[in-house]
């Protein structure tokens, strides 16, 4: 096993921290360390995950209260130094709330929580987060009530022009259309990176697709991250 250590930030309401820890440990071949939200100093600065869940009950706006945590202030500081940061589901919401990523994740178009398997077209395989996925279609489940990606027209154009969109909801064959859009996200966006390309946020859960009994596309995702830590 590599001596590298991946940090996973834990809030009182995180509920995908355990699932993520197992996926990272098994499929990135690294050690992991949980960071409690009020810690002010991250010992290991190699790669940071912000897991899914309901950080502080998701009251006010999903992820909003979490941005006031000392650990997130540290994440913001480290992001400026180029440390790779990945936010999944609630983690993505937190990253947009603290402006490390553009846009907002608003209520799903049908105002309901949605849990289902989704196909995602990998849009940009040059990013370190997706280089192992080529330009394929992967299947990860979603489970959220606020995953509807929204941003201004200009920002959306910039995101697209800069190749910052990494994942888009699609059909099994990779067709991107309204039918394959589960939550109303603009341009079917499921995951984006920042301009500097070291911060990734995505709504679907790759850590829930690493089981030999179910879908295994998540394994490719985590395997691919090995080279960048």
């Amino acid at each position: 096993m590599s001596k590298r250590v991946v940090s996973i930030i834990v809030f009182p309401g995180s509920n995908c921290d355990r699932d993520l820890e197992i996926a990272v440990r098994n499929h990135m071949n690294v050690k992991t360390e949980y960071i409690w939200h009020n810690e002010t100093n991250l010992k290991n600065k190699e790669m940071i995950f912000i897991p899914g869940g309901f950080s502080f009950g998701d009251y006010l706006r999903s992820g909003a209260l979490a941005t006031k945590s000392p650990a997130i202030k540290e994440v913001i500081r480290l992001s400026k130094k180029g440390v790779p940061i990945i936010g999944i589901c609630n983690g993505f919401q937190i990253l947009t709330e603290c402006n490390l990523l553009e846009g907002s994740l608003i209520d799903n178009y049908n105002q309901l929580f949605i849990c289902k398997e989704c196909f995602l077209r990998v849009e940009n395989s040059e990013s370190m987060f997706s280089s192992n996925l080529n330009k394929s279609v992967v299947k990860f489940p979603i489970a959220h009530a606020q995953g509807n990606f929204y941003t201004s027209k200009d920002d959306l154009k910039r995101l697209e022009d800069n190749n910052q969109v990494i994942f888009r909801y699609s059909s099994e064959k990779g067709r991107v259309s309204k039918i394959s859009n589960p939550n109303g996200s603009l341009n079917n966006i499921a995951g984006i990176i920042n301009k500097e390309k070291n911060v990734l946020g995505l709504m679907p859960h790759p850590e829930r697709a690493v089981d030999s009994l179910n879908d295994r596309d998540g394994i490719k995702f985590f395997n691919g991250l090995k080279n960048f830590i």
């Binding site: 009020n38 502080f56 009950g57 009251y59 006010l60 209260l65 006031k68």
Partner: peptide
């Protein structure tokens, strides 16, 4: 009002 209670706790923490 659990939402307000959660917000109030964060305000105190801040």
């Amino acid at each position: 009002d659990p939402e307000s209670e959660a917000i109030m706790k964060t305000i105190s923490r801040m």
